[in-house]
């Protein structure tokens, strides 16, 4: 289904890939014309566990939900491999499991295990990341399944460290790089360096488009808006309950 998702994205005008973590949002997004949907680990953790820490969600729990959502998909589904759910050996089986569960593209991040939903997460060594990347590649059974690597430590290893990881990942054959937790200057520097792999950047509202970016990866805009709407509705509900009681 996504034999050339990254190429398809490159042919578009910096599309946004929306993130979801619940069925109703997935359905809503499926009815729109997005090129792919991301089943985000943090958003799924919020749905299934009522927690904000993606590291609490185990592979089997996430994969089950992924299978349910995959049955509904009308567009490529991107799965969240987090940091591989353990060592490179775990990553091998986890990538296989997510592919079998219907993910057409898989995102592996460079955090240490377990992953956390933080602005400044701890990242692993380049060698460990490469081991996990190779393991994920080997675990995939369908040549069409893409593997994107999400680098989350530019706040720590800097632009130079980011470029070094990107280069290593190009050597090993990753399909694309996602940059997260970046500053505008850092993103500009990465783009200006003519990266060897397609760059996808995480997106929040008001993020300006930049040439050199292949696509933008949403971080849960709809979920945050929905939560605000629920808060507002809750206020109305409480107000209504008080008025009813007073009558």
């Amino acid at each position: 289904m996504t034999a050339s998702l990254i190429h398809k994205l490159a042919s578009m005008d910096q599309p946004i890939i929306p993130a979801a973590g619940d069925g109703q949002t997935m359905t809503l997004l499926s009815q729109s014309t997005f090129p792919a949907l991301f089943l985000d680990g943090t958003l799924t953790t919020q749905t299934l566990l009522d927690e904000n820490n993606q590291g609490l969600l185990t592979l089997s729990e996430y994969a089950k939900f992924c299978r349910d959502m995959a049955l509904k998909k009308t567009t490529p589904l991107i799965g969240d491999l987090q940091s591989g759910f353990g060592s490179p050996l775990n990553t091998y089986y986890a990538a296989q499991e997510l592919e079998r569960s219907g993910a057409d593209t898989i995102i592996l991040n460079d955090q240490t295990y377990p992953s956390h939903s933080l602005n400044r997460p701890t990242t692993t060594t380049p060698a460990d990341l490469l081991g996990k990347t190779k393991a994920a590649q080997d675990g995939l059974e369908n040549d069409a399944t893409e593997l994107w690597i999400k680098l989350e430590g530019i706040w720590d290893y800097g632009t130079e460290g980011f470029q070094q990881r990107l280069h290593y990942l190009a050597n090993i054959g990753a399909d694309a790089i996602i940059i997260d937790h970046y500053t505008d200057d850092q993103l500009n520097a990465i783009i200006a360096s003519t990266p060897e792999l397609p760059i996808i950047a995480t997106w929040t509202p008001n993020t300006p488009h930049k040439s050199g970016i292949t696509a933008w990866l949403d971080t849960g805009y709809l979920a945050r808006q929905a939560q605000q709407a629920r808060q507002q509705a809750l206020t109305e509900l409480k107000k209504g309950a008080i008025e009813y009681a007073e009558k």
């Binding site: 060592s87 490179p88 050996l89 990553t91 091998y92 060594t125 380049p126 060698a127 460990d128 490469l130 081991g131 996990k132 190779k134 393991a135 080997d138």
Partner: peptide
């Protein structure tokens, strides 16, 4: 497991 050891990378 051994295939993905740091030294192999």
């Amino acid at each position: 497991d051994a295939m993905y050891a740091p030294e192999k990378m």
